[in-house]
Design a protein around this nucleic acid. Structure first.
Lengths: 163, 163
DNA sequence: ATAAGTGCAAATACTTTGCAAAGAC
DNA sequence: GTCTTTGCAAAGTATTTGCACTTAT
């Protein structure tokens, strides 16, 4: 009674997001599909992007210049965000490592001003509550690997990045 | 003709933000000061928080649950954000390193689900434009060190974090 | 005197939501 | 038949902005 049903529009929204490397926002996805699917509504795009995020099928890159941006590739990888125009680029691991070490801009390329490293998860309180209430973890936490100690879902790929 | 003038309210806003470790949003700052400064307006808080960000006096931690959150400590350091309740914690470097290596939750503490590492700066296009147009870099880029090669402002502390 | 700062309220802009109709199973 | 998905438009909400007034220099 809480399952997900097939929806052609949902599929198209996912495909559209996965078809680009521009890390767009909801409106871009809507606009692209609108010509092909005239009776698509922006609300549906928002709804489904949220669904994908919670299912771990896509990645939210957070709000850039007032608009939430998404990545159709859900495996975590470094990004570059231009603080001037909002362009988002996938950052090859090799380049990321160079930037970490270098601390200055690379010739003919973008200039790194600063970076942010943020850990996401559950604080002690919320973790306790989510276990107590229903045994159900927040949707954001589902679909991931589990802690070797306590069986809680956890993302282990942190080991691989820049370690 | 483009200077900044003293403002008591501005000082208070900065002090208020620096007085807490909770990484609050604009409204919290406003609420705290309202009792002491009854004729303070929310718009002024927003305006000045933006000013501080551009001057590098505070740090924006991005939008968490729909609200932009700030850190009165402007030197970059790792944070933990609870994806359930939005709590933001400063993360001691030692713990950050452990989390990078461990990839699983720590006993009686928060659970790391995933982290994001984002580089901010200027892409090639914008960099070119900002040089051409006026010789003035976007405000976000000011007040920082300069690239040893091209003299463009750049934040060099990336070298020190987890390298 | 001049330019910057502020209060206030209206405007923006992105996102969410309520509800009735349509669709999947 | 039941539960999910959707279109549509309205509501919601954080943030920005215009303008007249105030304040700093």
């Amino acid at each position: 009674m809480n399952g997900r049903k097939f929806s052609a529009k949902r599929e198209e929204i996912l495909k559209q997001l996965q078809s680009t490397k521009t890390h767009p926002g909801a409106y871009w996805v809507y606009e692209q599909l609108k010509s092909r699917i005239p009776d698509l509504s922006l609300g549906t795009v928002y709804r489904n992007l949220n669904v994908f995020c919670k299912e771990g099928k896509i990645l939210s890159l957070g709000v850039v210049k007032g608009e939430e941006r998404f990545d159709g590739i859900s495996s975590p990888h470094p990004h570059f965000i231009c603080s001037c125009c909002g362009t988002i680029l996938d950052l090859p691991m090799k380049k990321a490592k160079t930037l970490f070490r270098g601390g200055f801009c690379t010739k003919n390329s973008f200039l790194i001003d600063f970076r942010k490293t943020v850990f996401y998860g559950l604080c002690g309180n919320c973790r306790e509550n989510s276990n107590k209430d229903s045994g159900v973890l927040p949707l954001e936490m589902t679909g991931r690997k589990r802690c070797v100690k306590c069986e809680t879902p956890v993302f282990t790929d942190v080991i691989n990045f820049l370690s």
